[in-house]
Amino acid sequence: MSFKHLKVPEGIALPSVPSNSPELRYEKPELGSNYWVADDFFKYEEAMAIRSSCLEREVWKYGKPYTKELWPGMRTPNALNHKQLKKIEKYVKSVIKKNKLWVADSNKVVVDTNTAILVGAEEGASRPHVDNRYLCRYAAVLYLTPNPIASAGTSFYRLKYANEAAGGNVVDPPFANLVDALNVTSLPYSAWYKDLDIENRFNRLIVFKGNIVHSASEYFGSDLDSKRLAITFFWMCED
């Protein structure tokens, strides 16, 4: 997918959102408010050991383009050990100011938390979405590719209407996801402006509200060692 999302044009008065169009509330991505970044999260040697442990796994689940799954590449669970996972959860609780986190239990879908995801350049593209509100309040990504393509981090998006009006980016109650909130089955790639990019850096942890529209910015690499490797996390907490 070669489509490139553009940011909202600066210095230009955009049209108003078309009347009777579905809308989302807009919440500007702000560091320390709805997303957080921690560089060099683990000691370098430990981060490299985590990476090696993930790449040495023999059992992987496969997504696009190998199966009919919506998600790309390949993934394997239980990427971090108990001590490493607790360190991340302690940090997350400290920045979101919550005393308790837990992983949602669902009979319908697998919540792929603490899961290593490996995706190459030809296996996926950005896919703006929100995490299901009934399964996730906060999400996190730990980047684990040394010398990555910096632009292949995580991006936040906001709606772009057909008349180029800029809309919102948050799914609020009682809706669970974009399908519910906008009453659509899907949206074209062109339906989004890019709002903010967070660079991909080795051993960088990012944390963010799951109900803000986001996506992996892009993917890279062609083999096990060069593809974009990241570990994803999803938590519920008290509102």
Rank of each mutant, 00 (worst) to 15 (best):
N203Q: 06
S94Q: 09
V17C: 04
V109G: 00
V213H: 01
L101T: 03
H5A: 07
N169Q: 09
L196H: 07
K87R: 15
A181K: 05
N200H: 11
R137G: 14
N107F: 13
V184D: 09
K90P: 13
R228K: 05
E10H: 10
V103M: 04
H214P: 03
P128E: 06
Y134F: 13
S21P: 01
V17Q: 05
S186M: 13
R204C: 03
L80F: 14
L135P: 01
F41H: 04
L31V: 08
H82M: 14
Y134W: 13
G120T: 02
N211C: 08
E122F: 05
G73K: 02
I212L: 09
S33C: 10
L144S: 04
S52A: 14
L159C: 07
E23V: 13
D39F: 03
P128L: 07
L196I: 11
L70I: 14
R75T: 13
D197S: 06
D239N: 12
N177F: 01
V111M: 04
L55H: 01
G221L: 03
W60I: 01
Y91H: 09
L196D: 05
V171P: 06
A181V: 03
I117V: 12
L80Q: 10
L80R: 11
A139F: 00
Y26S: 05
Y143W: 12
G124V: 06
D105P: 11
S33M: 09
W235I: 04
E218V: 11
H129L: 01
V59W: 12
K7L: 12
H129I: 00
V37A: 05
N169V: 07
V109R: 05
Y193C: 00
P9V: 13
Y189C: 14
M74R: 15
R51Q: 00
K68F: 15
D195S: 14
V141E: 07
R51V: 05
L31F: 08
N34E: 04
K83Q: 14
D39A: 02
L196F: 09
I206M: 00
K28S: 12
G120R: 01
Y44G: 13
K4R: 14
C237N: 11
L55G: 00
L224H: 09
D112C: 13
I12E: 07
A152N: 13
N163Y: 10
K108T: 11
G124Q: 01
